[in-house]
Design a protein around this nucleic acid. Sequence first.
DNA 1: GCCAACGTTGGC
DNA 2: GCCAACGTTGGC
Length: 213
Amino acid sequence: MPTKRKRESSKTSNTFEQESNGVVKEKTRPSSEEEYRHWLMKSEPESRYENGVDVRFGIEDLKSCPDQTACWDGVRNYQARNFMRDKMRKGDEVFFYHSNTKKPGICGICEVVRESYVDHTQFDSKDPHYDRTAKRDNPRWYMVDVKFKRMTRRFVSLAELKVLHAEHKQSGGPLKNLSLFTRARLSVQPISQEEWDYILTLESQEEKECVQK
DNA sequence: GCCAACGTTGGC
DNA sequence: GCCAACGTTGGC
């Protein structure tokens, strides 16, 4: 099984864990209780070693997995976990985002093919995302499986999205609340239908000249 | 490699 | 339950 996953804290706490009935009220973006059917997930395409283990997992790595499918293990942030555990559904579509790299941005699309289940790496002392406080009978971290769908027709860079986000804040355009900027550090983010559709239209357009390469 | 932003910890 | 200190994320 491939080891992968973003840079999420491996430090943990009980602070936000109270779940009397298994339901967590998760704060989504202020205006909405809408159910998201689209997401953005960050992963690092370049090798980086955490506790001696390479945490690289770019979209090419996903394509190389059996059935082009991988578990999204290693998320150690409560908001990101809650999205995966409570909100993601089979068939949801996901922008695959390359982070912590020279040119960050959206490079492909994948699909949720298995809904949340226990992230086994929390119990593995050799895994960089080992959580010594997690108990087998009371797991803390969950993951989903995603399957590669396709590359985007072109790379949609963070720089480009940033310019559009700034414009749309003024004009009230579709990317005015994009989580990439309003919740920048979240590695699993919700994408509204409107945002999804708009970003897909960028695929078939040239990148604007004003964007710094 | 720097460091701003922000999530988490833990003393009180 | 506040909040200062600390640690991590991730763009640059």
